[in-house]
Amino acid sequence: MNWRPGADTGRLRARAELLAQIRRFFLDRDVLEVETPLLCQAGITDPAIEPLRVDRGRSVRAPRYLQTSPEYAMKRLLAAGSGPIFQVARAFRDGEAGSRHNPEFTLLEWYRPGFDHHQLMAETAELVCKCLGTRGQEKYSYRELFRETLDIDPFVASLDALEALARQHLDLGGMSGDRDLWLDLLMSHLIEPQLKTRGLCFVYDYPATQAALARVVESDGVPVGERFELYVDGIELANGYCELTDPTEQRARCERDNARRREHGLPEHPLDEALLAAMAHGLPPCSGVALGVDRLLMLATGATDIREVLAFDWERA
């Protein structure tokens, strides 16, 4: 049994300083720090994210889910009139382990009533530059980025064309899937590596099928999800939305998620009725973003593996 920590004292100190810096940033802007529960009655329906379940315990009457992000609870606070809020929270995602993933990790999540996603991107850039020092910044729509780096239009290219492009560069065996699979593959395997030299790179306005919980609007003749991702030196650091506020649409998306889970033989998860009730009451127009604190610390300290910045990673925990 290896009892020793994976992070050295320098990195433990850097983490403490980073957390202090984050709190100061939001204190200066009158954004309220909140804490919400980790073990909740509802999980997430998103088929690409799997929550860990807790089934036993004297207090556990029905299965509870370790939160994959504090999003739902924070939106309930917003609906109750909290105003701008932030949280530094532990989040858990089953099966996610690698050089940039640990199944238990730290998320910084914040919400800004009245902001659109472009305003929130600007604030995210300010925070990241405060923590890492000023760096170059670029901003592309998802469509522009695909056109520029791969010379393909992700919104109109046929599924066959997307697959052919991926296979031209990658050995994929008998892989098959829908449009989003090929788009995810092109993004993560061919585009991301090209972002390594671009400093802060925001990508915004995703295909509507990848909107997750972002509002969908029409742009340039196609429906886009007002979602953004921030890459820093090619590392995916943050994901934000101009938030969906319509409870009917929210319910429909969750049900669609569960239908896709059924198709793929994944467990279905109950809808968060408390969130839906809060949205029915009224979620103020807002934007929110979740940022990986461990990855920010990796960037700040030049670590190449997430285990170097965690006191005790999953295997040592």
Partner: peptide, 14 residues
């Protein structure tokens, strides 16, 4: 074996 996963997308192993 490298685990590759966009936060909101599908997971791959390279």
């Amino acid at each position: 074996n490298e685990f590759v996963k966009p936060g909101k997308g599908q997971a791959f192993n390279r």
